[in-house]
Design a protein around this nucleic acid. Structure first.
Lengths: 166, 166
DNA sequence: ATCCCTGCAAAGGGTTTGCAGACGC
DNA sequence: GCGTCTGCAAACCCTTTGCAGGGAT
């Protein structure tokens, strides 16, 4: 929820260097978006980021949010995901361990996990097939413990009903 | 390109059983779409499938294609992928080894690969985090050998030009 | 002063939905 | 005959684009 000043200073430095290197302008909007992202926890979509900034009376447009997100993804300060829906999800990623996602197909909850073996697979397959692999995305889809319990509960209720009817 | 009759008969049987089990109607459109999918090779998107059927003078609507694809994905005869673009890609999957994808970020070529370790990870993480994991999607993003060569070639050309200018 | 970047709104493209008619059951 | 499925087209939603004004360099 609260912005970690130290982290923000580091990512700001990285973003500044990236912009200078690419001869892009260091506009206040770009840094405001970066700050808002590093103030947030977890995953977010473009609309919720836009709404958050609007709610803080910051005058931005969706176009600028999209533009800036592209830049941030390009300089590895933000990662972009497609969890099945037609809506990109983003998350800050500076200083975070590389991780993957477990997605509940019932309630759409997203849980993160790490497994070092994936990196080995990435490296090995890249060498094998002559690809210069830059990054990967592993999503596991299933039903979380809560939804499993909920489904079981509904099933039990139905059986109870059937028994009562007969 | 040509339809494998034996395979088609098997998937047709599976689809029929699925429809009966769910009390859904066995319409000719649904089987025509299944047949068209099992006649195709590799990945496809909804539009190209729709166009193919139109070209064969088969009267279908996009709505029915979408509806049927959902059913086929649900009964595991077709798998759906999101390779980054905002357009779903599908592929037949009956009788195919589970596999994952290597995607070239330059030319958008998609290559398949298999690695048994992924299945182990899927099982282990599911048990660890109490998810009933049903399936997964692993995409490796990188630059293929061709595009690496092309980029290198362009770089060489530019250097030659610079040397010629000076 | 230049011209890239911004905000705004309209366009774009894939997917979903509503409705009247068709047809599987 | 009932109720679902279909075709068609409009609606929807996320994202991209065009344009005129503004601000970074």
């Amino acid at each position: 929820m609260a912005l970690n000043e130290e982290t923000y200073n580091e990512v700001k430095k990285i973003f500044t260097a990236y912009l200078e290197n690419k001869s892009l302008r260091k506009t206040p909007e770009r840094f405001a978006i970066l700050e808002e992202i590093y103030t947030r926890e977890g995953h977010f979509d473009v609309e919720s980021l836009y709404i958050s900034m609007k709610n803080k009376n910051y005058r931005v447009s969706r176009a600028t949010v999209y533009n800036t997100l592209d830049l941030l993804v390009d300089c590895d300060l933000v990662s972009k995901h497609q969890f099945g829906k037609n809506m990109a999800q983003y998350e800050k990623c500076y200083g975070y361990r590389q991780h993957d996602h477990l997605i509940c197909t019932d309630c759409h909850k997203v849980i993160e996990f790490c497994d070092p073996r994936i990196h080995n697979i990435q490296t090995m397959i890249g060498e094998l097939l002559n690809f210069k692999v830059m990054h990967h995305s592993l999503n596991l889809y299933g039903v979380c413990a809560d939804c499993q319990a909920k489904t079981q509960h509904e099933k039990d209720q139905k059986e109870k009903q059937l028994n009562a009817d007969s």
